[in-house]
Structures are given as C-alpha cells and as structure tokens.
Amino acid sequence: METNTVEFNQIYKENHQNVYRLALSYVAGNESMAEELTQEVFVKVWQNLDRFRGDAKASTWIYRITVNTCLMHLRKLKKENVNISQEISEDITEEASDEKEAKLTWLRACIKSLDEIGKLLMTLVLEEVPQKEIAEITGISNENVRVKVHRTKGKIFKCMTLKAKQHNNN
C-alpha cells in the first residue's frame, strides 16, 4: 500500500500538468470541469496502478486514460444538459484582458469547434506527444494520424484566421 502511494504520488506530480491541460482544452477552458476530469483520470490511474508497473511508457497509458475519460465525460455533459459552448463567449475580445489571453481563448474556441477525435488529436499534438505515441494512444494508424492531424491543423488555422479578422474588424 505504501509503495502504491509513493508510486502514485510520483505519477501524479509528473503528469498532473499534462492531464489538466488536455482536460482544460477538451472542456474549452472551463477550469472546474477540467479539475473534475483531472481527478477522475487520477482515480482511474490509482485503480489501474498494478497494470502500470514495469511499463516503460506510463505516459501513453496516462494519456489513454485521459482521452478515454474525456470521451466518457460526454455522457455526463449530456445528462446535465451542459453546453460547453455556453462556457465560452463568441465575443471573446471583450473578455480577454490582453491580446495573448484573447488568442488563447480563440484557440480554445477553435479546438472546441472540432469533432471529438479532432479535439483530442490537436491537444495531444500541442502537448508535443510524438506522432507514434499518438497512434498508440488512439489506436489510429501512424499514417492516418498524420493525415488527420494535418487536416485538423488546417481547420485550426482557418478558424484562428477568422477570429483574428473578426477581432481586427471590431
């Protein structure tokens, strides 16, 4: 039990930030939801701790849990009738205190507009998870990941350009 706790604490400290950021982008910047998701992920990590042992790629496993927990979270959102889009204003320029923050809000809004797999792929790419590892996490072939990521980036560029234009027009 003591060994488990030490191991878990180590995993928590090493991965909390990545898990939280991935969750945060999945729920379009809603911090309380992201925190809830992060806790759910680590409860699952604890439950599956024995299956981690000796596995060289703990990060792949943790990302798998994170991605799958995000997917499962959709049910909860529907049950509570939460519309994530309500959490993020379209007229984001007024809310953001400076341009950097505004751009981050645009980016989150753009990620939010993607389909589920697009959201997850884009976040993993932004977290600098290697393409091969993304393929292992998602179960999508390497080549397919490359194609999907390329398309998703294209959508993000388009969306961000549109947001920038809207901002300049205001």
Partner: peptide
C-alpha cells in the same frame, strides 16, 4: 499556434489534493 498554447500557466507541481 504553439506559442499561444504554451502561454498557459505551468503552476508548481501540486501535492495530491
């Protein structure tokens, strides 16, 4: 895009709450 993403806060590693 990556620069925008990286602006997100990287707080201190927290203890297990």
């Amino acid at each position: 895009i990556k620069d925008i993403w990286n602006q997100q806060g990287t707080s201190e590693m927290p203890d297990v709450p």
